[in-house]
């Protein structure tokens, strides 16, 4: 899977819009066949980065190569080597499934023989056997999403960019979609994906967390969770998480808190030796306290932690 060769290299990439620095001095590399996740709030610079890597937007400074091609010097060459799909699943809704596939095959310049083969592949991948004449707008979201992915990889690109590809799709379809991505990766296709969903990020081989245009953290899931080494996280079950957070924030042992479902996660400054004290504080405030137990940091804990430290 990881052959060690970087198919995407980003070196000090910067993009300004007037005074606003959308992407600030970004550097990283993506290996061939890797699923590389981009995590960050809206406006963190994920989409701007992708647009530069796709050759749609010129960098203000810095360089990037995609599939060995410089995005600044040969954007058309980049476009031939990549597939792109956005959260809009941008297909033509008044056209049928077949007509959409034919159109994208046309603008990618597929030969007739190749077209037959890829057409079959996309129909099969999207689970659209026998529905080639259906109008695209009548398809359910999950199917449309798979068809959009199929159209984006008709020309068998070695690199695929997915910009929030699973927005507004049900969990079952999301799971099926990620199986497709895993398959692509196993075939050696490099996938760069942005997402808001933490469970999706866990699918990625490596994750880059972006904040305000800068790279805030980069690593595998377990490497990122290692950021918590020396501190620990406890999950506290109470009837009233909002009230509990207020009480916990006053405790000297607690660095910060966040709501996690109906429970509260508290990051402790040191080990987990102050649990009894926490329970005492909460009970004193009139809360009924259930279990207090140390937990593994989730990716969401990591993300919030990185954001917090960046903000301060």
């Amino acid at each position: 899977m990881n052959t060690g060769a970087d198919t995407i290299t980003v070196d000090r990439l910067t993009r300004r819009f007037g005074d606003f620095v959308a992407v600030d001095d970004l550097s990283f590399g993506v290996h061939q066949g890797e699923i590389f996740g981009f995590l960050g709030a809206n406006g963190a610079g994920k989409s701007t980065t992708i647009r530069m890597l796709c050759g749609l937007l010129l960098p203000t400074s810095g360089t990037a190569t995609v599939g060995g091609v410089d995005v600044r010097r040969d954007p058309e060459g980049v476009k031939r080597r990549i597939g792109y799909m956005s959260q809009k699943f941008s297909l033509y809704e008044q056209l049928t499934v077949d007509e959409n596939i034919r159109f994208f095959a046309g603008i990618y310049g597929l030969s007739r023989a190749k077209f037959e083969e890829r057409h079959r592949f996309v129909i099969e991948m999207a689970g659209l056997e026998g529905r080639g004449r259906s109008l695209t707008r009548d398809l359910p979201g999950g199917v449309r999403q798979r068809l959009a992915l199929g159209c984006a990889i008709l020309h068998e690109p070695p690199i695929v960019f997915l910009d929030e590809p699973t927005g507004g799709v049900d969990p079952l379809s999301r799971r099926r979609f990620w199986r497709l991505i895993d398959t692509l990766s196993a075939q050696g296709v490099t996938v760069l994906v942005t997402t808001h969903y933490m469970d999706e990020a866990e699918h990625c081989h490596r994750i880059a967390i972006m904040h305000a245009g800068r790279l805030a953290a980069l690593g595998t899931t377990s490497e990122l969770k290692g950021l918590f080494r020396g501190r620990s996280i406890v999950e506290i079950d109470t009837g009233n998480p909002v009230m509990a957070m207020r009480v916990l924030q006053d405790a000297p042992a607690v660095e910060k808190t966040s709501v996690f479902g109906t429970a509260v996660h508290a990051v402790l400054r040191h080990g987990d030796d102050d649990l009894a004290e926490l329970r005492q504080r909460l009970t004193a405030a009139g809360l009924t306290v259930g279990a207090i137990a140390p937990v593994e940091p989730s990716l969401e804990d990591v993300f919030l932690d990185v954001m917090d430290r960046r903000a301060s």
Binding site: E76, K79, R80, K88, S90, Y92, F104, G109
Partner: peptide, 17 residues
């Protein structure tokens, strides 16, 4: 508006074509 333009721009297709 629908985003299909962006999709098409990602293809190696010149503005002229």
């Amino acid at each position: 508006e629908r985003g299909t333009m962006e999709q098409v721009r990602m293809a190696p297709l010149g503005a002229l074509s």
